[in-house]
């Protein structure tokens, strides 16, 4: 049993180091790459601006690069985009009352059907 505990501790330790390293690195390039995959190309059928070579996508990539270089954070960049182009431009729907069903629906569904099945079928 001791061996198991040690393993678990080791695992937690590694995780903490990793999270720390990730947080430190989550600057410029990582933020830039993340942002351009989460912004939709408005003129394309269904692509993000990282994938698209449309002029608007290139402009928006440059804008994101500029904002990242100025030290702006994720929320600022997303806000900047949605103020001008509407929430449609963000691939991640905001966690707002309007999108509540979208975000919580799956977990609610999971809960309801689990409850339904297990209540009905488990041996008492």
């Amino acid at each position: 049993m001791k061996a198991i505990k040690n393993f678990i501790y080791f695992g937690i330790l590694i995780s903490i180091i990793q999270i720390g390293a990730l947080a430190g690195a989550k600057k410029d390039d990582i933020l830039y790459n993340q942002m351009i995959t989460e912004i939709r190309c408005m003129v394309c059928q269904n692509q993000n601006i990282a994938e698209s070579e449309a002029p608007l996508a290139i402009d928006l990539r440059n804008k994101v690069r500029e904002m990242v270089d100025e030290g702006k954070d994720e929320d600022y960049i997303k806000g900047y985009m949605s103020e001008r182009y509407s929430d449609f431009i963000l691939y991640e729907p905001s966690f707002s009352p309007r999108n509540l069903i979208l975000w919580l629906g799956p977990f609610l569904f999971l809960f309801i059907i689990s409850y339904y099945f297990f209540r009905r079928s488990l041996k008492k």
Binding site: T37, S86, D87, F88, L90, Y91, E92, P93, R98, P106
Partner: peptide, 18 residues
């Protein structure tokens, strides 16, 4: 209501944990 997009970040956040 306003149009939204549902893309990779949503599925990463909801689909993968399931």
């Amino acid at each position: 209501l306003e149009k939204i997009s549902v893309g990779v970040p949503y599925y990463n956040a909801v689909f993968l944990p399931i």
